[in-house]
Computed example of a mutant assay.
Amino acid sequence: MTRSVRAALKLAILRICLNGLPAREHAVVAGFPDEEGNSVEVVRELAGCLPVYWLVAGDPESLAWLVSDADGVSRVRCVRKNSLRAYWAYVTARYVFFTHGLYGSPKPPRHKTIVNLWHGDGPKRRPGFATIRSTFVVSGTRLWGEPRAQGFGVGQHGVLICGNPRVDQFARPATDEALRELKLEARRPLVVWLPTYRTTRYPGDRLGAVRNWSDADSLSVSAVVQATLTQAVQDAEAMGVQLVLKPHQLDADNYASTGLHIITDTDLREARISLYQLLARADGLITDYSSVWTDFLVRDRPIGFYCPDLDQYVGGRGLNVDHYPSLLPGQLLEGAADFRTFLRDCVDEPAASRRLRRRAAVRIGAETRPAATRRLLDAVGVRCRDTRE
């Protein structure tokens, strides 16, 4: 029997069991990567309500720190995703939550609730994902949430615009000690640049058959980009601002020669903080087509957009909205002078900047209230008994 036949047989058996077995009072959560913020926050909140099976690809012990201080942590069972224990937990769970699909994502039976947490809102064009089936799909904005009714085949009633659970990490900001681990100074203003990856650097066994791909030319090979960023680093230092780059784990771009302070996923892991806990200490954010800015609206801090390849990106992968710059809650940074203005705004923000951001939040229908995860669990019917430790 070939590997593909075995995999198809396994999924077929899981589908039959999912439909035929009764639901037990526990939940299953799976995210990609294992530390993905939406899945982690759902595990943490569910732990105070009912038993949770957290299905992971990596070493369960290495992930324990992410939930160790959560209420009801003793009810969390972290198990390998491709194990019999994980399969059994999945087919018998009353609630299933995932970020990128799970076990082929079959159509949910009526007696079980399956929630697609997804992994953010934003303008990047994506193909239809109706094959990732679920009862509900989560969003943080009306602009990008409402189209998911058709895209994921859940109908309007199945779209939950409750905010992405990971924004709850803003309420647990990185400590001064964690910042020192990252070679940052707690007393100095911090601005984080989170660029979308244009070209991937494939690091190993991730997402099945997906390998390297490119949505646009690498930014770091551009002499203009290199010069702009090098000047921005120098200007930030002169202002006393810490300008930090956190690249995506798949990003093939290399900005080391610009002098940017680069923080990796490994650095965050060693400091025992998440990306959003770092952002909770940020005075400003720079990004482009990433969904992170829709989450950062919760912080109500300046957001700048560095999109030197806007025309190429629109003509390549494409965006799912017209006139993207008109939606933005902050300025487009087109050169070193714009960077200087933005960095000053992060230290002392003018009222006009705040008004622009708040109008943009209304325009896209952003959910900016705290407690997103609790709203999600309420919406899907998870009721916490008085079992918190």
Rank of each mutant, 00 (worst) to 15 (best):
M1S: 12
T2P: 13
S4P: 06
L11M: 08
L11N: 10
R15M: 01
C17D: 09
L18M: 11
N19C: 14
L21V: 00
L21C: 04
R24S: 14
R24I: 06
V28L: 02
V28H: 04
G31S: 13
F32P: 01
E36L: 14
E41G: 00
V43R: 07
R44L: 12
Y53K: 04
A57F: 10
P60M: 11
S62F: 05
L63W: 05
A64Q: 10
W65M: 03
D69I: 04
D69F: 06
G72N: 00
R77K: 11
C78K: 13
V79F: 00
L84Y: 10
Y90E: 08
R94L: 09
Y95M: 05
V96R: 14
F98H: 12
G101A: 02
S105R: 04
P109R: 13
K112I: 02
T113R: 15
V115K: 06
W118G: 00
P123A: 06
K124F: 00
K124Q: 05
A130D: 13
T131A: 15
S134C: 12
S134Y: 04
S134A: 15
T135R: 07
T141C: 12
L143T: 03
R148H: 11
A149W: 02
A149E: 09
G151L: 09
F152T: 12
Q156E: 08
I161T: 12
C162Q: 10
P165R: 01
R166L: 12
Q169I: 04
F170P: 09
T175A: 05
E177Q: 09
L184R: 01
A186I: 03
P189V: 05
P195S: 11
P195M: 03
T199F: 07
L207I: 08
A209H: 15
S214N: 00
D217I: 01
S220D: 15
S222N: 04
A223I: 08
V225R: 02
T230K: 14
D235I: 11
A236Y: 03
A236K: 10
Q242M: 04
Q242A: 03
L243H: 03
V244P: 02
L245H: 03
L245D: 02
K246G: 09
Q249S: 13
Y255P: 01
G259H: 11
I262R: 14
T264I: 05
D267G: 06
L268P: 01
E270F: 13
A271I: 12
R272S: 15
R272K: 15
I273H: 08
S274F: 06
L279W: 05
A280Y: 13
G284W: 05
L285D: 05
I286S: 03
T287L: 13
D288T: 07
S290P: 03
S291T: 06
V292Q: 10
V292G: 02
V292A: 07
D295S: 13
F296K: 04
R299N: 07
R301W: 00
R301L: 07
Y306C: 01
Y306F: 15
G315Q: 11
G318W: 00
L319F: 13
N320G: 06
Y324S: 03
L327S: 05
Q331E: 15
Q331Y: 08
E334Y: 05
D338V: 03
R340V: 12
L343E: 04
R344S: 15
D345L: 03
V347H: 01
A351S: 10
A352W: 07
R357P: 10
R359V: 06
R359N: 09
A360F: 11
G365I: 13
G365E: 02
T368L: 14
R369M: 07
A371H: 11
A372I: 05
L377V: 07
V380F: 07
V382I: 05
